[in-house]
Amino acid sequence: MSFSFATKAVAVRTARWSAVPALAAATIALAASPALANASSARVSANTASVSHGQVTVGGTYQCAGRGSDQLRVTVVGENRRNQVEASRTVNVSCAAWTHTWRLTLNSDRRNEQFTAGQVRVQATLVNPRNRNDHASTSRTLFAR
């Protein structure tokens, strides 16, 4: 009888300790569920770049769910013969469930600097101003002709 009681006690103790990882996993899943429920529905890409008269034109695609507008922030960094050239712009874009194309022509942020043909780094970020968790970003090196 004593043997049976000891065996049961060990079994109960083992069962309690084996439930701890399962309980911890359930707690983590519950804590992460708002983040998973708010997963971003936004998508953005950058896939074209060209240079003309010192300006750089970049383009790509974006997709965002819902109605209204989101903000597309684009930063382009290139190099000319003397130093690094940078340009940035933020524009409002309309959202719908389908994929849209975007295209922006940018001047250098600094006066008297121009983009030249060569590699440019394009950073494009799509942000929902009503929900900062709903965003997408891409960064690509493209060859601007």
Rank of each mutant, 00 (worst) to 15 (best):
A15W: 12
W17F: 15
S18T: 14
A19M: 11
A19V: 04
V20F: 10
P21H: 02
P21L: 05
L23G: 11
L23V: 13
L23D: 12
A24N: 10
A24C: 07
A25I: 06
T27D: 11
A29P: 03
L30R: 12
S33Q: 12
S33C: 04
S33P: 02
P34H: 06
P34D: 03
L36G: 12
N38I: 02
A39D: 13
S40N: 05
S41K: 12
R43P: 01
R43G: 10
S45C: 08
A46M: 06
A46I: 03
N47L: 04
T48Y: 09
A49V: 02
S50Q: 10
V51E: 11
V51Y: 06
S52R: 14
H53C: 08
H53M: 13
T57W: 10
T61Q: 10
T61W: 02
T61F: 00
Q63A: 03
Q63G: 00
Q63V: 00
Q63H: 00
A65C: 01
G66V: 00
G66W: 00
G68T: 02
G68Q: 02
D70K: 08
D70Y: 14
Q71D: 14
L72G: 03
R73T: 15
V74K: 03
T75W: 04
V77H: 03
V77N: 08
V77C: 07
G78M: 00
E79K: 12
E79V: 09
N80A: 07
R81K: 15
R82P: 02
N83W: 08
N83F: 09
Q84P: 01
Q84E: 13
E86T: 15
A87H: 07
R89Q: 14
T90Y: 08
V91C: 05
V91D: 07
N92L: 09
V93I: 09
V93N: 01
C95N: 05
A96K: 00
A97L: 00
A97N: 00
W98N: 06
H100K: 02
T101I: 04
W102M: 08
L104Q: 11
T105V: 10
L106I: 06
